[in-house]
Design a protein around this nucleic acid. Structure first.
Lengths: 154, 154
DNA sequence: CGGATTGTTCGGACACTACCGAACCAACCG
DNA sequence: CGGTTGGTTCGGTAGTGTCCGAACAATCCG
């Protein structure tokens, strides 16, 4: 197994841990390492050794998650796929909705527990922690965007 | 179903999405909402309606993840469990190791792809993005710690 | 010592998900 | 048109993880 294949397999494992399917993860890995950053379904299926039905669902999953974009070059008959620009920052932004959700959960918890002080203290801490993150994390991503752009243009 | 029970169930769903088991998530929810923030296994098992064997593994899982601590009051015969201080920040810190792992994965990818410029650009971006996060996210958590402490002692 | 209580471990049942191959649509082309 | 190609959908299957009840080990108590 060549070095690139090894990287693809490992990327599959990593992304699987993030909630994607193994196949989706390997597809991302392959796109990352491919020379022009694009591929079509049969190409990917062949390289990764998965059925075309599986590729179909995996790619649609990735498209739905906003990690790849599907496009069709003029005159071509098959779709091609390429990674979204700065996929990873994008994945982070998606995960951020989680912060708000947790904060809201804590808020509902607060309504549920009435006014016993212990639970209130814990749930308020939870709510504020996730509120803090929901507020501050986007700023961090913005700073990364700046750093990225400033490096691309000099 | 009372409001608290509803909160517990919902918390179970949330934490399950983070990779914990459903039962573990519900246990956390129950501890969050409980009046003194502690419980023993049979208490939890009774409330949540799960077998004591399941409680045993769930609690050990949580203990291993550093989210709860097990202790035994003097003269008592059964263990009790309480949430770790600021569980959520703790969970975040644990997740941060992920950043380094991804950065390292990208680095290995770079070694694999040789010197074709396209893949190199993508993988360098990935490496640097996670590197940036691994560097900056701890600072964010530190700022949260400060904010938390400054509010506890005014 | 027994007997009882607490916690862990084990085997089996169950649900869930990813995957495959086959069947199925839709678009294009000779 | 009929045939070919690209893509989706569907039924069945294998693998994984969670849970339960039962058996087990360890500790305490009368």
């Amino acid at each position: 197994m060549g070095d690139v294949e090894e990287f693809v397999e490992e990327a599959g494992l990593y992304f699987e841990r993030l909630g994607l399917s193994r196949t989706s993860g390997r597809a991302i890995g392959w796109l990352l390492a491919s020379s022009d950053g694009t591929a079509d379904a049969s190409e990917l299926g062949g390289r990764l050794g998965v059925a075309k039905s599986s590729m179909s669902v995996a790619l649609r999953q990735l498209e739905g998650a906003g990690l790849i974009v599907r496009f069709r070059p003029p005159q071509e008959r098959r779709d091609r796929y390429r990674l979204e620009e700065d996929v990873f920052a994008r994945a982070f932004r998606a995960k951020m909705s989680e912060f708000d959700a947790f904060s809201a959960l804590a808020q509902r918890g607060l309504r549920a527990v009435g006014d016993s002080p212990g639970p209130r203290r814990r749930l308020e801490l939870m709510r504020d922690m996730y509120g803090f993150m929901a507020r501050e994390f986007p700023k961090l991503l913005d700073r990364w965007d700046q750093e990225r752009e400033s490096r691309q243009s000099p």
